[in-house]
């Protein structure tokens, strides 16, 4: 088992390197460099050279790549072009906000999806199941920006219960935070619950057809007992794995929720940096998302290995 885990971790690191390289190549693809885009029409060869030196842009493509990669490994992402501050500092102020948002949304979405998925898988074809399925279909066919927009329209503009903008810095106390966080967390959870509930239902339906579930029922277990204690543990691996993949939906959800609620998080920062062509900042943001994503997928993988006695024995 140790060797298997070591192999997964090694592959994860290799993947991360590949991703970093891709981010560097794609984001720096346009001709001209950051120095030119900052100075624009004011550029003279002298000022360009000076700014390039300041931004660490001298040398060939390859040299810049290795300098950048070396910086990434040591946590030095360079300086933001827009604000001139170190990228690491800018990110440090935003990252906790995004983690809070995503974490709270996961805290809401995971239990709700589990309950919905289990309940509808236990009685396929029932009214409850059809209703859940229909709502999931609608939820996962709706762009996250529409979900967030509709929530603003209904709960903020019409009902006036919560503020439309999530001014976290201005909030004070638990009550104040609750007021500003409720709508973003609601919007984000809604955009992933549909997908997760549907997936849990599908995986669980397959497991419920397994003969060992019938065995449990014929031993006198109730349907709920058989589902929760016999079917669910066996599909824990696939469910965790698939949940990691629906993080994709979560992350893209975060992007829109942060933009629409003007929430001071990392994805808002990234969207702004893309619009401003602030490459060092954007590269760092992209890398952090990919790394976070890969780490979660890796954890999911390890859980799946631990949940399977056949793999555990290796």
């Amino acid at each position: 088992m140790g060797a298997l885990i070591a192999k997964r971790i090694g592959l994860g690191l290799l993947t991360l390197w590949l991703v970093a390289t891709l981010v560097f190549m794609v984001s720096g693809a346009l001709p001209g460099d950051a120095a030119e885009s900052i100075l624009g029409q004011d550029a003279t060869p002298e000022t360009l050279a000076a700014l390039r030196a300041q931004l660490g842009l001298e040398g060939g493509e390859l040299a810049r790549y290795f300098a950048w990669l070396g910086g990434v490994v040591t946590g030095d992402f360079g300086f933001s072009l827009a604000s001139g501050r170190p990228v690491a500092d800018v990110i440090a102020t935003r990252l906790p906000n995004s983690l809070l948002l995503a974490g709270l949304a996961a805290l809401v979405a995971i239990p709700v999806s589990l309950v919905l998925g289990i309940a509808s898988a236990m009685k396929p074809g029932s009214l409850f199941d059809r209703l859940t399925t229909l709502l999931s279909v609608v939820a996962l066919s709706t762009p996250s920006f529409l979900i967030a927009t509709l929530i603003v329209l209904v709960l903020s503009v019409w009902a006036g219960w919560f503020p439309a903008l999530a001014n976290v810095e201005g909030a004070s106390g638990i009550a104040g935070h609750f007021r500003v966080m409720t709508l973003p967390v609601l919007a984000l959870s809604l955009s992933v619950i549909g997908q997760m509930a549907r997936m849990i239902r599908a995986i669980l339906l397959g497991a419920l057809r397994e003969p060992y579930v019938e065995t449990a029922i014929l031993n006198g277990a109730s349907r709920l007992h058989a589902t929760v204690f016999h079917a669910l543990p066996n599909v824990a691996g696939p469910i965790v794995n698939a949940s990691a993949l629906s993080l994709n939906a979560l992350i893209s959800g975060v992007v829109f929720v942060e933009v629409i609620f003007a929430y001071p998080g990392l994805t808002k920062l990234m969207v702004d940096s893309v619009a401003a062509r602030d490459l060092p900042l954007m590269q760092a943001c992209a890398l952090i998302f990919c790394a976070g994503f890969l780490i979660l997928v890796l954890i999911a993988d390890l859980i799946a290995i631990l949940a399977n006695p056949r793999l555990r024995a290796r």
């Binding site: 693809a29 993080l247 992350i251 893209s252 990234m270 992209a286 994503f293 890969l294």
Partner: peptide
């Protein structure tokens, strides 16, 4: 297959943003 799996496991919105920043 490993390369494709890697690409597949990336958050697509983030990567689209990177590409738009890079290529316009």
């Amino acid at each position: 297959s490993w390369f494709m799996d890697t690409m597949n496991s990336l958050p697509s919105t983030i990567f689209a943003l990177v590409a738009v920043a890079g290529f316009g």
